[in-house]
């Protein structure tokens, strides 16, 4: 019965082909450093899921943000776990993505024909940092407030356009409800959407080109 259902689906979706090409594809000899990309993807999915669950209770308004985070931590069953995973996962993701980049750099995996994968990877790293930056403000505690004050001030030190950048980031000259709202919007809509899209292209390129060999001494 299930076999028939599976065969029906496979004929139309090509599940077997997908499995062979995506998960059973040939790889160069195993190397643990090559798993960091998958680890980054896993963390991204994890952050996405826990982030979605956090929005069930989190409220991005200066009146409620802090209280709602406190409520998640102390009032809701396992709120500490969901937020804990999101909190530590964020730090871990930056580290893993960065080491992933270092590995690609030191094994020279960015060379032809994988330059585009590398360039997109740089975008992914920057967006991951952007996620960290925008997410840091959301708990709306003292540390978040002043970290964002300093962070946006640094962005504002750019010559000529600094003031404009500062205002665009903050949604005005000062940190306000507008800042919190636009950081929230960037954190849950804009950056994740771009990340997801670019991750798709990144993965497509990896499947297309296959992974590079670990360089030998002769290389």
């Amino acid at each position: 019965m299930w076999k028939k259902v599976y065969e029906w689906l496979d004929e139309r979706l090509g599940l077997n082909d997908m499995y062979t090409n995506l998960l059973d594809r040939p790889e160069p000899t195993g190397n643990w450093w090559n798993t960091l990309g998958s680890a980054s993807l896993f963390l991204f999915v994890m952050q996405g899921l826990t982030g979605i669950f956090l929005t069930v209770y989190y409220t991005p308004s200066p009146d409620h943000a802090y209280d709602s985070v406190q409520y998640i931590m102390e009032g809701v069953a396992f709120g500490w776990l969901i937020r804990g995973i999101h909190h530590w996962g964020a730090t871990l993701m930056v580290i893993v993505v960065f080491i992933h980049m270092l590995r690609v750099f030191f094994t020279a995996s960015f060379k032809y024909p994988r330059e585009l994968t590398w360039l997109i990877g740089i975008g992914l790293l920057l967006m991951t940092l952007g996620m960290g930056f925008t997410g840091y403000l959301l708990p709306w505690n003292q540390r978040a407030f002043w970290a964002t004050t300093v962070g946006t001030q640094i962005a504002g030190s750019v010559p000529f356009v600094g003031e404009f950048i500062l205002k665009a980031l903050r949604g005005g000259p000062d940190l306000s409800a507008l800042t919190l709202q636009r950081f929230f919007s960037a954190h849950i809509w804009m950056l994740p959407a771009m990340l997801a899209g670019l991750i798709g292209v990144h993965l497509f390129l990896i499947i297309k080109h296959g992974e590079s060999h670990f360089p030998t001494k002769e290389d």
Partner: peptide, 15 residues
């Protein structure tokens, strides 16, 4: 390990 607590987390206000 993560799914079960998550369900509990989501339905908590109802309980």
């Amino acid at each position: 390990a993560i799914g079960l607590p998550t369900i509990s987390y989501l339905i908590d206000p109802a309980l």
